[in-house]
Design a protein around this nucleic acid. Structure first.
Lengths: 209, 209, 209, 209
DNA sequence: AATGAATGAGCCTTCATTCAT
DNA sequence: TATGAATGAAGGCTCATTCAT
């Protein structure tokens, strides 16, 4: 008696499913997963409680799709940037652009990121989705940069670490507001560190023992 | 009629309160805040459900104290290390030690860290506690290093960023296991980056534009 | 505005209505009334959920018709047997045949019987349908046997009791499997008892006080 | 995290648990299992919804205990009667007493019997409980009667069939009211049949082929 | 101070029935 | 007629918090 969940084909249905995902996205962002209930999601989406279960197996299923949407939103701009590298290639400029991009993405998605990341701790499925996301990004970028002749060694480690670091900074930048920090200065630190790490500067050699 | 929460004076009471906090600590670590209920905490602490509300205003209140305990546990070893600097001072060795220390602390406390950090998103109070923690650490360390003649400029930014970065790495190291990453290599990257950042190497100049 | 339920005249409609009844029949048999939902019935019948309410006032209404179908299926073979009595009439043989017939009918319909009988308890309407069924059978058979010169007295009581008794046995035979029971022996007991009861043997006199 | 259900030791608790069972007993009797909800049970028992789950794992668990209670109520009087056989033993009188006893028991418990029996169809657990009950009664009575020198052969079959038959009649007697039936006459039929069946009369021989 | 039974609001989910197309 | 998406009331169950003892 496998419960069937509509896989909507018609435009109106798809749109409705998306409205539910959006509502979930917003509410999870604002209140977190545990403080959001299905009635709120339905209401925000402008549908009845019942129909939610026409599109999703359960509350967790909404979370899954919200997560997927988030990941797509996060991944795309970064990948796009690597697809369309400017010529001539100016490393420092490029890193600066990436930093701005990540900052921008974080401003837009920080809340949902937090909400989802929070679940990582107790929810294996979400955790796996996050790990996979990081894998994809790391490997794609590492191979791209390697192809371009940068990152002579330890490519994955460098890229991954740079990614973590950017993430950290972006979170800091968007959320925390320590008054004794000059965030513009910090941003410069980040750019320099990433540039160095990524082997986009002459200091690459430094990171081998 | 303001609800009264006992501020336990007697030894036995204090010990009971601590047992509850410990139980909360463990359970929040294992299951997360939302998947732990007060009955479980009481049981693990070996007390009755009722008495929990003799020591804590509500469930959130337990969380507050758990958070405080966590922060104390995290802060102390780091501060200790800076209190008792080895002489002669060997920068690279010192950073390496710190990295190991943070890694160790993370191994022990990573789960509660995750559990608490997760709440940061929806809980302003916890969020504030985290920010304050970072403030304390950053300022103390920055001033210490400055006193020692390192970190000529942008001390707070550098230290804070280094801290974020260590945090990131520690999480990565303890939790995620991307198979394409050689974590020893990554650790070296971290050490070098932190050393550079913290101005403990001659490359300090590099981080000013 | 009295809700209208189509009384289908066209062949295609009638066939569709019958498909729904059949689907209900099957599903009620398999899962019971309360564990079957209208969506399942519609699906099994190959129609839409909506149209079910074109043919039936509500879920109960399907039950009513399923019950009627069941009753017809049960009644017919028995009546047929009494219509076409073999000549010469051999009482013992006849009872044996009836027992086999009831057993057969039960094997085929036992599940729906159970499902429907279960509702008897809470549903007056179904209960009434059952009572009426028993009335019809009892009276028809009693009068037939009386006409034939059997059952000199207490005809209705004897027939009715014989019927109950057969019912009981058939249920036992089809469903329960007590390992300490030899069902062939039991069947013989039944045949003898019914024969005696129905006054088809010389022991009839025995049942008057 | 096996959910714990209080196994009440204290009088007040036991009494409360019993009140819930009684409330379930009544409501299942009146409305059937599916038409009774936990709130109604709680209300009738004079307790809160929540506490119901302090004493029972789930709604089904209440049903289990109601069933057990019912079975005990049904079994006891019958067993008692066989324990304390009157001397001198008068078969016909004894059967008559039993019939009256069963009738009485049925009048008191018929509704719950129906309600529970109804579930037999879809609920394996209840079904098993019923089968076991029949086993116990059949075997105990059969061995008792055999010891007394009755039931020379096919003891189990005879007793079991007699039991079914009594059940059937009792149900008929209490519930159905076919106007063309004289129930006193029917009762006599039953008594005679059971007497014959149980080998308590000289007609025993008749049932062997 | 302490116990643990009790409360009841609230949550996720199902499903008979309706309605727009 | 027919579809199947949509509705929303209702049900089983949990759990933070209170209360009688």
């Amino acid at each position: 008696m496998a419960k069937t969940v509509r896989e909507p084909q018609q435009e109106r249905s798809i749109e409705k499913k998306n409205r539910i995902i959006s509502a979930g996205y917003e509410l999870f962002s604002e209140l977190g997963y545990y403080n959001t209930n299905t009635a709120m999601i339905a209401k925000r989406a402008g549908v009845s409680t019942g129909i939610v279960y026409g599109y999703f197996r359960d509350k967790k299923d909404i979370l899954r799709e919200v997560t997927a949407l988030y990941m797509q939103r996060i991944t795309k701009p970064v990948f796009d940037m690597f697809e369309n590298l400017p010529t001539p290639f100016q490393p420092r400029k490029f890193v600066t652009d990436i930093v701005e991009l990540v900052l921008e993405a974080h401003k837009k998605n920080a809340k949902i990121h937090e909400a989802l990341h929070a679940l990582t701790h107790t929810d294996e499925e979400i955790s796996a989705q996050f790990i996979q996301l990081e894998d994809e990004i790391t490997l794609k970028i590492a191979s791209r940069l390697t192809d371009m002749g940068f990152l002579k060694n330890d490519a994955n480690e460098k890229v991954h670490f740079a990614m973590d670091l950017l993430q950290s900074f972006a979170h800091e930048y968007v959320y925390d507001h320590h008054e004794y920090i000059d965030y513009d200065v910090m941003k410069k630190l980040v750019i320099r560190t990433v540039t160095a790490l990524a082997g986009l500067s002459h200091t690459d050699s430094e990171f081998r023992s």
